[in-house]
Amino acid sequence: MYFLLNILGVLVVMGIVYLCSPNKRRVNWKAILTLLVFELLITWFMLSTKIGAWVINLIASFFTWLIECANEGISFVFPSIMANEQVDFFFSALMPIIFIITFFDVLSYFGILTWIIDKVGWLISKISGLPKLESFFSIQMMFLGNTEALAVIRTQLGAIKDQRLLTFGIMSMSSISGSIIGAYLSMVPATYVFVAIPLNCLNALLIANMLNPVEVSKQEDVVYVPAKEERKDFFSTISNSMLVGAKMVFVIMAMVIGYVALTAALNGIFGFFIDGLTIQKIFSIIFSPFAFLLGLSGNDAMYVAQLMGIKLATNEFVALLDLKDQISSLPPHTVAVAVTYLTSFANFSTVGMIYGTFNSILSDEKSNIIGRNVWKLLVSGMAVSLLSAMVVGLFVW
């Protein structure tokens, strides 16, 4: 029965997203079905084979090394802070952005990243039937996270149309940053974290195609490469990259502080009228039907629904800390779907982070496309997290 509910959940989520699509006739169903089959194969490979787990861990180790390199620079400037056992979010997750952007801009300068975009984008595009840049971006987010990935392709973003630009904003709701994988692994099982990362990125591609279908001509389906005369010298390039990264860090910080504080203010207002009422509790009630569609029983469904509300209203860290205390008493299926759902940045704060990133790397006019379509970003983020959790749930009982 619960397995059938899990399957029904996949159909319900996709049906709701389809109803929200303003251009239903343009939805590429062949690409969607292909991606779903591909996701099922990936999930089976990672959950059922030792080779799959080894490959994911090997790739994750490389990005852990990148973070360690970034921490060397941070420690040089803030040695006392980095020496602490617990380091603040600003230093552990945001500050490494400066080095990560610079590192990948160096790869772009020498043509390495452009080559990867072309080859990997071609492969995923062939599998899904969707455009190259979007296909690569979905894979790129698997390792870099949303804001870092957006910064790396900022030149390409500045050269595409607004409607297509919105696709990247929608997709950006469904990733995590490589800099915080270690924090996740200290709270929940590594297996489901590593499974969730690629599933979220592929589902971001799938949901974006349904929610904002855009036809891209063969002439537009290319990776933008600046002409040689547009390129600055090497040291000017990396210096500019560092400044772009620093600006992004402070913009994101401001957005996160503002949205978390706004949530606290709303809880205070609700509590004034009804004792104990919070926005988290409201969302947990709203999400309870979806929790049942994850194939969960009564008590587990309400608990996971509460985690969904906590994640959306605040962030996944608060929810993961709660789950960490309860995880030993939960059945495997509940743990699998809960961890998978929580492994992403899909919440109100992320909308601010994405808008702030667009505003820092593009013009105000282009970044306004995000402000006008906030609801699409929220629908995408929740739908991707649910779909990923439902796919994983099919394999763990």
Rank of each mutant, 00 (worst) to 15 (best):
157 L>V: 14
345 F>L: 07
122 W>E: 09
107 L>A: 11
344 S>L: 02
338 A>V: 01
227 A>R: 08
81 I>N: 05
74 I>C: 10
8 L>K: 10
32 I>Y: 01
266 L>W: 08
363 S>D: 06
76 F>D: 06
4 L>K: 13
254 A>E: 05
197 I>P: 09
199 L>E: 02
85 E>P: 03
201 C>G: 15
76 F>S: 11
199 L>D: 01
272 F>Y: 15
313 A>T: 15
227 A>W: 01
270 F>Q: 05
46 M>A: 09
277 L>K: 10
166 L>A: 13
213 P>F: 07
118 D>R: 13
30 K>W: 04
368 N>F: 03
248 M>Y: 04
91 F>A: 09
182 G>L: 00
65 W>V: 12
192 Y>N: 08
391 V>T: 09
171 M>Q: 11
289 P>R: 03
348 F>V: 06
157 L>D: 12
92 S>H: 02
251 V>I: 11
310 I>C: 01
391 V>G: 01
13 V>P: 11
271 G>R: 00
163 Q>I: 09
301 A>L: 07
75 S>M: 10
11 L>K: 10
70 A>W: 03
150 L>A: 12
290 F>S: 11
225 V>I: 14
133 L>D: 00
348 F>P: 01
231 R>E: 07
223 V>L: 02
125 S>A: 14
179 S>H: 05
52 G>F: 04
243 L>R: 10
63 F>Y: 14
58 L>G: 09
346 A>Y: 02
84 N>M: 12
161 K>R: 15
65 W>M: 08
249 V>Y: 03
312 L>N: 02
182 G>K: 00
172 S>I: 12
239 S>Y: 08
256 V>A: 07
233 D>Y: 09
161 K>S: 14
3 F>M: 13
60 A>E: 10
104 F>L: 11
163 Q>Y: 11
214 V>R: 05
137 F>Q: 14
186 S>D: 13
186 S>W: 00
371 G>M: 07
131 P>V: 12
257 I>G: 03
3 F>N: 13
320 L>P: 00
129 G>W: 12
143 F>G: 03
301 A>E: 06
309 G>N: 04
338 A>G: 02
42 I>Q: 12
381 G>C: 03
378 L>W: 02
250 F>E: 05
396 V>I: 15
218 K>A: 12
45 F>R: 08
263 T>E: 05
214 V>I: 12
93 A>K: 00
233 D>W: 04
26 R>G: 03
183 A>N: 13
144 L>M: 15
7 I>K: 15
157 L>Q: 13
352 G>C: 03
256 V>C: 06
42 I>N: 06
199 L>H: 09
39 E>T: 08
129 G>H: 11
3 F>G: 04
118 D>K: 14
3 F>L: 15
122 W>S: 14
297 S>H: 13
359 N>W: 03
191 T>L: 15
177 S>F: 00
189 P>F: 05
179 S>E: 14
207 I>E: 01
41 L>W: 03
125 S>K: 08
356 G>A: 06
269 I>V: 15
288 S>L: 14
49 T>N: 04
338 A>M: 02
206 L>Q: 04
291 A>P: 08
143 F>E: 05
144 L>E: 09
290 F>E: 06
76 F>T: 12
357 T>N: 05
302 M>D: 07
